[in-house]
Deep mutational scan, measured.
Amino acid sequence: DELEKRVKKIARKLNLSLDQVEEWLKRNNNDELVEAVKRLKKK
């Protein structure tokens, strides 16, 4: 979905793993995208 695409884009842009992106999003209080990261990690 759109949020998952955004997460992947962030990960690529910042050259981070999904775990690192998740931490980064949590620090930025971006719950919506944190949920998207969790969905991606399950895939």
Score class of each variant (00 low, 15 high):
Lys5Trp: 14
Arg39Trp: 04
Arg6Gly: 02
Lys43Arg: 11
Lys38Trp: 03
Arg27Asn: 11
Glu2Thr: 10
Leu33Cys: 05
Glu4Tyr: 07
Lys41Asp: 02
Glu2Leu: 11
Glu35Gln: 08
Lys42Met: 10
Val21Ala: 03
Lys13Ala: 12
Glu32Met: 09
Asp1Met: 11
Ala11Val: 07
Arg12Ile: 12
Glu23Ile: 10
Lys38Gly: 05
Val7Thr: 01
Val37Ser: 02
Val34Gln: 07
Asn28Leu: 12
Lys8Pro: 00
Lys43Phe: 10
Val34Trp: 10
Asp1Ile: 14
Leu14Thr: 02
Val34Asp: 04
Lys26Val: 11
Leu16Lys: 05
Glu35Ala: 11
Asp19Gly: 06
Lys26Asp: 03
Ala11Asp: 00
Val21Ser: 00
Val34Cys: 09
Val34Pro: 03
Asn30Cys: 15
Lys13Met: 13
Asn30Pro: 03
Lys9Gln: 15
Glu32Asn: 07
Lys5Ile: 12
Lys42Gly: 08
Leu3Lys: 07
Leu40Arg: 03
Lys43Glu: 07
Val21Leu: 15
Asp1Gly: 13
Glu23Pro: 00
Asp19Asn: 08
Leu25Val: 03
Gln20Ala: 10
Lys41Val: 04
Asn30Asp: 09
Arg27Phe: 11
Lys8Trp: 15
Leu25Glu: 00
Lys13Arg: 13
Gln20Met: 07
Asp31Cys: 15
Ala36Val: 10
Lys43Thr: 06
Glu23Trp: 10
Asn15Leu: 05
Lys43Cys: 13
Arg12Asp: 12
Ala11Met: 15
Glu22Gln: 07
Val37Phe: 04
Val37Tyr: 03
Leu14Glu: 02
Asp31Trp: 15
Asn29Gln: 11
Lys8Tyr: 15
Leu25Tyr: 06
Leu40Pro: 01
Asn28Phe: 12
Glu2Pro: 09
Val37Asn: 01
Leu16Pro: 00
Lys9Pro: 01
Glu23Met: 07
Leu3Cys: 13
Glu23Val: 09
Lys8Asp: 07
Lys9Ser: 13
Arg12His: 13
Arg39Ala: 13
Leu18Phe: 06
Val7Phe: 03
Lys43Ser: 06
Leu33His: 01
Val21Tyr: 03
Asn29Phe: 10
Lys43Met: 08
Leu33Trp: 05
Leu14Gln: 03
Trp24Asp: 00
Lys13Tyr: 13
Asp31Gln: 14
Ala36Cys: 02
Lys9Val: 12
Leu33Ile: 04
Glu23Gln: 10
Val7Asp: 01
Leu14Val: 01
Lys41Glu: 05
Glu2His: 10
Lys41Ser: 02
Asp19Cys: 11
Glu22Lys: 04
Glu32Leu: 13
Leu40Ser: 01
Glu35Asn: 07
Leu18Arg: 02
Glu32Trp: 10
Glu32Lys: 09
Leu18Ser: 02
Lys41Ile: 10
Ala36Trp: 04
Glu32His: 09
Ser17Phe: 08
Asp31Pro: 13
Leu16Glu: 01
Leu14Asn: 05
Asn29Thr: 07
Leu3Thr: 04
Glu2Ile: 11
Leu40Gln: 02
Ser17Asn: 11
Lys13Asn: 09
Glu32Gly: 05
Asn29Lys: 11
Lys5Thr: 10
Asn29Asp: 08
Val37Met: 04
Asp19Leu: 06
Leu3Asn: 09
Ser17Leu: 06
Asp19Phe: 05
Asn28Lys: 11
Asn15Gln: 11
Leu40Asn: 02
Trp24Leu: 11
Ala11Pro: 02
Asp19Glu: 08
Val37Gly: 01
Asn15Asp: 05
Arg27Thr: 10
Val7His: 01
Val37Gln: 02
Val7Ile: 10
Asn30Ala: 14
Lys38Ala: 06
Asn29Trp: 06
Asn15Glu: 04
Val7Met: 05
Glu22Val: 07
Asn15Lys: 12
Ile10Leu: 14
Lys13Leu: 13
Glu35Met: 09
Arg12Met: 12
Ser17Thr: 14
Asp1Trp: 10
Leu33Glu: 02
Lys42Ser: 11
Lys9Tyr: 15
Leu16His: 01
Glu35Tyr: 01
Lys42Leu: 09
Val34Thr: 07
Ala36Met: 04
Arg27Gly: 11
Leu3Tyr: 10
Asn28Cys: 10
Val34Glu: 07
Lys5Ala: 14
Arg39Lys: 09
Lys43Tyr: 11
Lys5Leu: 14
Glu22Trp: 09
Leu14Arg: 04
Lys38His: 09
Arg27Ala: 14
Leu18Gly: 00
Leu3Ala: 13
Lys43His: 10
Arg39Thr: 05
Leu25Asn: 00
Asp31Lys: 12
Lys38Tyr: 02
Trp24Gly: 00
Asp31Tyr: 14
Asn29Tyr: 08
Arg12Gln: 14
Leu16Ser: 00
Arg6Glu: 14
Lys43Leu: 09
Asn30Arg: 15
Lys9Asn: 14
Lys41Gly: 02
Lys13Gln: 12
Leu14Ile: 02
Asp31Gly: 10
Asp1Leu: 13
Arg6Thr: 12
Glu32Pro: 04
Gln20Cys: 09
Asp1Arg: 13
Lys5Asp: 13
Ser17Tyr: 08
Leu40Cys: 04
Arg27Asp: 10
Lys41Cys: 06
Ile10Pro: 01
Glu35Ile: 07
Leu25Ser: 03
Trp24Asn: 00
Asp1Tyr: 10
Lys9Glu: 15
Leu25Thr: 01
Arg27Lys: 12
Leu14Trp: 13
Asn15Arg: 12
Glu22Asn: 02
Ala11Ile: 13
Val21Thr: 03
Asp19Met: 07
Ser17Pro: 05
Leu14His: 10
Val7Ser: 01
Arg27His: 11
Glu35Gly: 04
Lys8Thr: 12
Asp1Glu: 12
Leu25Met: 05
Ile10Thr: 01
Leu33Met: 08
Arg12Phe: 12
Glu23Tyr: 08
Arg12Gly: 08
Asp1Gln: 09
Glu23Ser: 08
Arg39Glu: 08
Glu23Arg: 07
Val21Glu: 00
Lys8His: 11
Lys9Thr: 12
Val21Lys: 00
Gln20Pro: 01
Ala11Tyr: 03
Lys26Asn: 08
Gln20Tyr: 03
Val34Gly: 03
Lys5Cys: 15
Glu22Ile: 12
Trp24Ala: 01
Asn28Glu: 09
Lys41Arg: 12
Gln20Glu: 14
Asn30Trp: 15
Lys38Asp: 05
Val7Tyr: 03
Lys8Glu: 14
Glu4Asp: 04
